[in-house]
């Protein structure tokens, strides 16, 4: 009896916090500090990159806005979840992309206070076809601040 008690005690102390976090995840789901850390949990046949261009379709590097390309893509996935838009595998409709793009620019504008009067947001998408990487670029949205003024 004492031996069993000792073993239970050992398990609680050695794995108690571990189990507690697992239970926390089951209750609260993907909500900080709980997560099942799904990054790269699958290798789907698609990946996206986002970029801004100006009126002449010249790329505006994100570093001029003090932001990184990774942050912009995170924004895309988080907004999609927020708006309950299914993403990935090029399944987003033109309307979805426009809505997501507008919201993305809105948030980036608040955070970086960029001063570009005209901006286009593109999504570059990659997929594999017969072992070759194919790229498709789609215009998500265009914002003309001069026009709105």
């Amino acid at each position: 009896m004492n031996q069993i008690k000792n073993k239970v005690n050992w398990f609680i102390f050695t794995f108690g916090v571990f189990v507690l976090y697992g239970i926390g995840y089951l209750i609260f789901g993907e909500s900080h500090p709980f997560s099942r850390y799904p990054m790269y949990s699958s290798f789907p046949n698609w990946s996206y990159v986002f970029y801004f261009t100006d009126k002449h379709d010249k790329i505006i590097p994100f570093e001029t806005m003090n932001i990184h390309g990774v942050e912009v893509s995170h924004l895309y996935y988080l907004i999609s979840e927020d708006l309950q838009i299914l993403y990935g595998n090029f399944q987003e409709s033109k309307e979805d992309l426009d809505l997501l793009g507008t919201k993305m620019i809105e948030i980036i504008k608040v955070q970086t206070d960029f001063d570009h009067p005209f901006i286009k947001l593109y999504r570059g998408g990659y997929y594999l076809e017969n072992d070759s990487i194919i790229r498709i670029d789609q215009l998500m949205t265009t914002i003309d601040y001069e026009d709105s003024i």
Binding site: F43, P44, Y48, V49, E63, I67, G69, G124, Y126, Y127
Partner: peptide, 21 residues
């Protein structure tokens, strides 16, 4: 499925490229 990791690699370095050109 790891052979498709190439798409993630291309994406990752492209993130850097759209940031600093």
């Amino acid at each position: 499925d790891g052979h498709r990791i190439t798409l993630q690699i291309v994406k990752s370095f492209n993130y850097n490229w759209v940031t600093n050109l």
